[in-house]
């Protein structure tokens, strides 16, 4: 028997928990069967498509802004899925977009190696706990510069960038015996004055 453990980081809303969505759409890629460069290019098209289609369902004065933010959020989350996805398993990346009353919810699901979960957990918690995202941005850039001098690459800027656009983030992590299923959730409020 293998033990499975599921935990959440942030204010996660389960898309399968009987929640009724006004609208939803799903994009599912079996990434293992796609060349990495094509997968990266398709990520841009998928993100733009999501932004274009979904901006039509919001108030016209918010259309352009929602389109831009959705595009950016989808790019960052799908890029993370490609970068950190586990190619030894199914490597399926699922992007779900749901409209729930006054919020747009973007779910991106991928499988990840268990060894990557502690880093994800600590960086996600750090971002959620900060009360000064601009200061955190500066700290991350300083760390990225120091890492570059050591010939390494690090930033975790994608999540920070999403938060800087006024979008909330949350995660659900299902730990299996060999692999973790990571669901990243971005929540875009449609009632914020500048949303």
């Amino acid at each position: 028997m293998t033990e499975e453990k599921t935990f959440m980081i942030g204010d996660f809303i389960d898309s399968k928990g009987g929640e009724k969505f006004d609208l939803s759409s799903t994009l599912r890629l079996r990434a293992k069967s796609i060349n990495q460069k094509k997968l990266w290019a398709s990520k841009d098209r998928s993100a733009e498509f999501m932004g274009d289609i979904w901006s039509l369902f919001v108030d016209s004065e918010k259309e352009k802004q929602i389109q831009t933010v959705l595009h950016s959020v989808c790019v960052e989350l799908i890029e993370n899925s490609v970068k950190y996805g586990c190619q030894d398993h199914d490597y399926i990346i699922t992007t779900d977009l749901c409209l729930k009353r006054d919020e747009l919810l973007v779910y991106v699901v991928n499988k990840s190696d268990l060894s990557q979960i502690p880093d994800l957990q600590s960086s996600a918690q750090l971002i959620l706990d900060t009360d000064n995202i601009r200061k955190l941005f500066k700290q991350k850039m300083k760390a990225a510069k120091a890492a570059k001098k050591q010939g390494e690459s690090t930033s975790q800027l994608g999540f920070i960038r999403i938060i800087m656009q006024g979008v909330k983030l949350a995660w659900r992590i299902e730990m299996g015996s060999e692999i973790a299923v990571v669901t990243s959730l971005a929540r875009l409020s449609l009632t914020r004055k500048d949303a």
Partner: peptide, 17 residues
């Protein structure tokens, strides 16, 4: 018109800083 986070990092670290 569009730049992802890797691009932002590149400008910050390799140019601005």
């Amino acid at each position: 018109t569009f730049l992802n986070s890797s691009g932002i990092k590149t400008i910050c670290v390799s140019l601005v800083m």
